[in-house]
Amino acid sequence: MDLSAINPLLFVAGFLVAATPLIFAAIGELVAEKSGVLNLGVEGMMITGAICGFATAVETGSPLLGFAAAAAGGAALSLLFAFLTQVTLANQVASGLALTLFGLGLSALLGQGYVGVKPPRLGDIDFGPLADIPVIGPILFTHDIILYLGIALVAGVWVLLRFTRAGLILRAVGESHNAAHALGYKVRRIRTLAIVFGGACAGLGGAYISLIRVPQWTEGMTAGVGWIALALVVFASWKPWRLLLGAYLFGGITQLQLNLQGAGVAIPVEYLAMSPYLITILVLVILSADKSAAPASLGRNFHASG
């Protein structure tokens, strides 16, 4: 065992990166669920965003354009879900699952010419002297702009839901769509916007994997992050900061267990490998002892006649 082999600075910086795709996907789904829509297509939207972003970044040479395309791709796919559930009133669970299957197939098709291609690198932001601060500098100020965008998005969603009228309306739609409708709010339009936001966020999360975390295109490369994001939203009791904490906890312990393995720590590897799931669930379950409930209309379709 040689714990000195683990560089704590690289480790923390590493898990911030590892958690970012999860943060994007989960915060988008949180907004959708707050509006009363359960979209199980996160995985499909992520992988679609991953390839849209990757292809665009490779073709244009601009990673930022790639991220924009990823958001657009994820949002476009989510519009399909919005059409199915908000216009044709199809079952949300079935539509979401179909969206995941569709997204996986579509991305494999789109990605045919991109296997083995190296994407352009998105540079880190230059914070000047801030990056030279001992310990804090290398951890906090050596990342790309998208990582900070993820954190800003969590803060933005928190402010929106807690302090703004728009957030209140969104929550009202999610809690009781009939009451919101009676007050004159356009339930389906608001939900569609929330779905599209969720899709764009999932797309960004997917592109963060294909452009920064790995960086390459491989079929099915999101490998289940979308499902973890879905679970995280529930365990975080639909609260943005808790979601951020959960994502960092999950990313952190995942990285930690790989580091400990590399350093040869004498804990059985099976326990290390399952620890991220266990600890994240445990912490969030303890935190959610305050009985925060799911949005009351979650997963229920709305029709004005109802």
Binding site: A5, I6, N7, L10, F11, G14, A18, P21, I209, R213, V214, Q216, T218, G220, M221, T222, A223, G224, V225, T254, Q255, L258, N259, Q261, G262, A263
Partner: peptide
């Protein structure tokens, strides 16, 4: 098969 995890594992080994 999990590209993100495989990449993480490689990065950790390189960091060490």
């Amino acid at each position: 098969f999990d590209p993100a995890k495989e990449a993480d594992a490689a990065k950790v080994l390189i960091e060490q």
